[in-house]
Nucleic acid binder design. Sequence first.
DNA 1: AAGTTAAATAACCACCGGGTTAAATATACT
DNA 2: AGTATATTTAACCCGGTGGTTATTTAACTT
Lengths: 124, 124
Amino acid sequence: MSPDHLSSTFAALADPTRRAILARLASGEAPVTELAKPFDMSMPAISKHLKVLEHAGLIARSRDAQWRPCRLEASRLKEVADWVEHYRRFWEQSLDRLDDYLRQLKHQELKTKEKKHGRKQPKH
Amino acid sequence: MSPDHLSSTFAALADPTRRAILARLASGEAPVTELAKPFDMSMPAISKHLKVLEHAGLIARSRDAQWRPCRLEASRLKEVADWVEHYRRFWEQSLDRLDDYLRQLKHQELKTKEKKHGRKQPKH
DNA sequence: AAGTTAAATAACCACCGGGTTAAATATACT
DNA sequence: AGTATATTTAACCCGGTGGTTATTTAACTT
């Protein structure tokens, strides 16, 4: 009922070309040649990337004459978001600790200033 | 200054064994043998998976006598969350459209009922 | 010093992923 | 029918990945 899409999704996302294609598709449908333009890469290479994205369910393709426009398909991205969300507490915890650390630094700095202030006045 | 970690992170996450290891580490540090227990897999295989996770910056390892406890390292997961967040509007939009669709179905259903009600009474 | 446990490394194998070039297919245009 | 454009498929290369078994290293134990 709920097959594990995560492996193929992550595998598809593990390539900068494919992530760039997704980013492009975020601003609307596009045919293959247009998707290929930014890349110094042959058409078959792009075609393969698109197949990977399609099999992962990250894009869907239609037909318009000889063009095959691609569009973003968001559900698998939501699955990624849901998955990573389970770990949120870990990075927020880390940020908290960083925050504590910075506060502590600030505190020490203030104490240093107080000391300085208490000292004999510097020359200038 | 900000190297692209996403590719190695996604690649590391594209394996169910490695995701299971991360899930285990979410409940605390563990040495290699304990991480290996749930899997029907040789120790070197686990060792390789851990190396992949470590190189991706998803875990960190320390030393305690002959044990090498692993702990979750959250920053790369945060990068994943931040990345996928850019696409949030797409799945929320899709859900909205689904919602619209369901509302419309409901509406038609109501209209059908009204028609039925207006018609000659059915047999039973 | 010898033995035990934890873990990593070496060497190997099969397969897959990302790229190429060349050829095939699909659709539109004239 | 013939040509042009868009895209895919085929065949190939190479390096990386995921697994194995056998060996080695590291640290503790007796």
